[in-house]
């Protein structure tokens, strides 16, 4: 369980996150929606410890990410997939995937590689295990990114706009995999602008507006005329998204 309590984040004078409260239970797929600059990425970066909190508390299975030991455990339980992939450019796909399992989980190399190949096969990249990131298309890179995250056997998957650097066809490749993972019961916290996709796979949707979490609803309620749609700001957001 990821518990976010009264989280505040300030960059100098500007407050980017205001008293955020959110709980993600195992098995849930929670999507964060919100316009650009509303603080979605910052929230994700607070959970995986890339940003220090200005106030409040975040725990991952009870491990406080503000403490050194807590963060170390939290990072083993969760894995992040990035918008710009952030693959290690000097390593092959296979090496990208096995680095952390070998060095953090202390898996034997052979075991880590076998698992990596399994994952690559799962995402349709079995033939590209020894390819370097530069040789891969954007969609292929992001699929490797997902494998790298999954290789840690994470309980929680954090995904920040993982398809927004991809063209529609590649977006499809990646979303199919994520949908598959969601069906399989992987817990996910998902930032996206793909509203329709979010509607299909998530169990809950939260809406961030200028650093405040203004709505937290089960997906169906969120899209219902008398639910999320009744909130003017969300209606406006969803209508605009449809048009794009």
């Amino acid at each position: 369980m990821i518990v976010i309590e009264n989280v505040e984040k300030r960059f100098g004078e500007t407050t980017v996150l205001k008293r955020i409260n959110l709980t993600i239970e195992p098995g849930e797929v929670v999507t964060i929606l919100g316009s650009s600059g509303s603080g979605k990425s910052t929230l994700i970066r607070c959970i995986n410890g890339l940003e220090a909190l200005s106030g409040g508390r975040i725990t991952v299975d009870g491990n406080d990410v503000s403490t050194k030991a807590g963060l170390a455990t939290a990072r083993r339980r969760s894995a992040t997939v990035f918008q710009l992939f952030n693959l290690y450019p000097h390593m092959t796909a296979l090496e990208n995937i096995t680095l952390a399992p070998i060095n953090v989980l202390k898996k034997p190399r052979a075991e880590a590689e076998a698992r990596a190949r399994e994952l690559l096969k799962l995402v349709g990249l079995a033939d590209l295990a020894t390819a370097y990131p530069q040789r891969l298309s954007g969609g292929q890179r992001q699929r490797v990114g997902i494998c790298r995250a999954l290789a840690m056997d994470p309980r929680y998957l954090l995904l920040d706009e993982v398809t927004s650097a991809l063209d529609p066809e590649m977006t499809g490749e990646v979303l199919d995999i994520l949908a598959e993972l969601a069906r399989g019961g992987t817990t996910m916290l998902f930032v996206t602008h793909e509203v329709e996709f979010a509607r299909r796979i998530s169990s809950r949707i939260v809406f961030l507006e200028q650093g405040e979490l203004i709505v937290d609803m089960p997906t169906e309620r969120f899209f219902a005329e008398d639910g999320g749609f009744a909130v003017p700001r969300i209606r406006q957001f969803l209508t605009k998204m449809k048009k794009d």
Binding site: G49, A72, R75, R76, L87, Y88, P89, A100, V104, M152
Partner: peptide, 22 residues
Amino acid sequence: DQGVIEAAKVSGLSRWTIFTKI
């Protein structure tokens, strides 16, 4: 690239491993 370093950090690699391997 800072993003690459962040990817290594969140996967739990130690500072030393990040420095020597990445």
